[in-house]
């Protein structure tokens, strides 16, 4: 590590906290402040944003002064494929649930997330998908009666 940044994790955390604190403070400034007696909607958040900034600063300074004891942070270790595919799977479910219905949305999301693993095998993934769709139908629609169609309007259902 560089001489100035002893603990990059804490430096990043501190920086992020400071950025978030400024965002919340900026958003709070638009809100009516009120007084301590009649606190407006902006009073409490602004105080908190100040506190968050202070804590962020302390974490940042700590990161510059003290060595990291835990495992080192490396960009190479970030599993971009898993991060992207799992997130995508959830987003696709959200996009699909109304127009496609539970069956297709659930199937797509399970299949996409199965792709995220390095141990992905097509037969296993297909089997898993079928299993989960059947299970979802049985439990959520038949047993619990969620107000959801199995097939959405795009697939001829309603």
């Amino acid at each position: 590590m560089s001489r100035f940044i002893r603990n990059p994790k804490d430096v990043i955390t501190g920086g992020l906290l400071l950025a978030l604190a400024s965002m919340f403070a900026y958003l709070s400034l638009d809100l009516p402040m009120g007084s301590a007696v009649r606190m407006g909607p902006g009073y409490f958040p602004l105080m908190l944003a100040g506190l968050l900034a202070l804590l962020g600063l302390l974490v940042l300074i700590g990161g510059l002064r003290f060595e990291d004891a835990g495992e080192p942070l490396s960009l190479a270790a970030i599993p971009w494929r898993a991060l992207g595919l799992v997130t995508l799977a959830v987003v696709v479910f959200g996009l699909g649930i109304r127009p496609l219905g539970l069956g297709a949305a659930m199937g797509l999301s399970v299949f996409l997330s199965a792709l995220a693993s390095r141990r992905f095998r097509l037969p296993t993934a297909l089997l898993l998908t079928a299993l989960m769709v059947a299970f979802a139908w049985l439990v959520f629609i038949k047993a619990l009666g969620l107000p959801l169609p199995m097939r959405g309007p795009w697939l001829g259902g309603y």
Binding site: R98, G145, P147, L148, Y158
Partner: peptide
């Protein structure tokens, strides 16, 4: 958007 629910029926 609703599926026939056996129990409610």
């Amino acid at each position: 958007m609703t599926h026939p629910n056996p129990r409610m029926a």
